Amino acid sequence: MNECYYDKRMDFFYNRSNTDTADEWTGTKLVIVLCVGSFFCLFIFFSNSLVIAAVIKNRKFHFPFYYLLANLAAADFFAGIAYVFLMFNTGPVSKTLTVNRWFLRQGLLDTSLTASLTNLLVIAVERHMSIMRMRVHSNLTKKRVTLLILFVWAIAIFMGAVPTLGWNCLCDISACSSLAPIYSRSYLIFWTVSNLVAFFIMVVVYLRIYMYVKRKTNVLSPHTSGSISRRRAPMKLMKTVMTVLGAFVVCWTPGLVVLLLDGLNCTQCGVQHVKRWFLLLALLNSVMNPIIYSYKDEDMYSTMKKMICCFSQEKNSERRPSRIASTILSRSDTGSQYKEDSISQGTVCNKSSS
């Protein structure tokens, strides 16, 4: 019967896998990684919160596609939380972690990846439903969209918890991987292959939908009444989704390939030297998505810009209360004009939600 090592700290497993975490994460390198990582995480929190708020405020976005896009932003926000937790539990600290804390660290990362991947699959289903009818948006009800979002997170949490539930090498120490010292190599192979296959399927599905939309748009455009912008709307949304998917595949594929090589026990592949940079590349994906949304969607960009402007105006008005009061008291006509300007500015802010 194999001996289990649940009571060991992570230094036991790192020493067995010959992973030197201390020398790689000290001094200047550690400071640079933490500074860059912290900046990225702050941007992830701010920008993805802005995307979610824009979808909530602007009635133009109250459709299934944008609800799912907001959920993708929520997955990126969750990824930022996972990276923050990773930053404070990596490097020399890694060897001092308990098994459960290390499982939590990796589980957060796995959950964020699965949430993004599953959400893109659900968006593919929603786009297929709408585009087969040549509509801009599908007729999914809010209840069904809510169930789909709950389904996404249920799958993500389950996949992130699989190693904790038993698929690990704590009772079979010879099967442990190098990059993830308490993950079984068999699990890494399953994890990476399933994700890479999902990438391939999504790329094929989106390409087919894109070609279908392009062909139908070209055929129907001369015979369809209505504005040109309305006929092009399905194509614009597809371009946004495909850009997001492309960035996701580019940022995550290198890291998954490295994990696959580790699962296959490739000792000559030098996976230890590139793991840190591929992790930062995966982090970059959560930074890129809000930029893609605002760049590819004019309404999204306009809504986000108005929200930032209105927030700045509110901050400035809070910093000058005495000046406002003295202006109103000293000059009634100027005060009235100031009130009118304030009302008009508030109206502009409120119109961003319409």
Rank of each mutant, 00 (worst) to 15 (best):
182 I>D: 08
153 W>T: 05
261 L>C: 04
89 N>C: 11
281 L>D: 02
39 F>T: 01
113 L>A: 08
109 L>G: 10
202 M>R: 11
37 G>E: 06
60 K>L: 02
273 H>P: 02
71 N>I: 05
185 R>Y: 05
103 F>N: 12
141 T>P: 11
83 Y>G: 01
114 T>A: 15
106 Q>A: 12
212 Y>E: 01
127 R>E: 02
225 S>Y: 05
283 L>M: 14
179 L>R: 06
117 L>Q: 12
173 I>D: 06
327 T>Q: 10
82 A>W: 04
280 L>D: 10
286 S>T: 08
193 V>C: 12
67 Y>W: 15
225 S>K: 06
133 R>Y: 03
169 C>W: 08
346 G>L: 12
162 V>Y: 14
213 V>T: 00
269 C>T: 00
230 R>H: 01
269 C>G: 01
305 K>Q: 05
297 D>N: 00
298 E>R: 07
346 G>Y: 09
153 W>H: 13
59 R>W: 02
93 V>R: 12
287 V>N: 10
227 S>W: 00
182 I>Y: 07
112 S>N: 12
283 L>I: 03
145 V>K: 09
10 M>L: 08
304 M>I: 04
6 Y>G: 02
309 C>N: 10
82 A>R: 09
69 L>M: 14
260 L>I: 04
70 A>E: 08
173 I>L: 15
91 G>S: 11
66 Y>C: 01
41 C>M: 12
89 N>S: 12
207 L>K: 07
289 N>W: 06
216 K>C: 00
342 S>V: 07
338 Y>D: 09
239 K>F: 04
273 H>Y: 08
330 S>Y: 13
338 Y>I: 11
65 F>W: 00
114 T>Y: 15
185 R>S: 08
230 R>M: 03
57 K>Y: 01
299 D>S: 01
104 L>V: 09
325 A>M: 07
67 Y>C: 01
73 A>S: 13
84 V>T: 11
110 D>K: 14
194 S>D: 09
308 I>T: 10
117 L>V: 09
110 D>M: 15
247 A>S: 14
230 R>E: 05
249 V>H: 10
20 D>L: 05
336 S>W: 13
330 S>V: 11
234 P>W: 00
281 L>R: 03
11 D>M: 01
151 F>L: 15
135 R>L: 09
89 N>W: 11
125 V>A: 15
191 W>Y: 13
132 M>Y: 13
165 L>M: 15
233 A>P: 03
119 N>E: 07
181 P>Q: 06
34 L>M: 15
182 I>L: 13
308 I>N: 03
175 A>S: 14
320 R>Y: 11
18 N>S: 07
151 F>C: 13
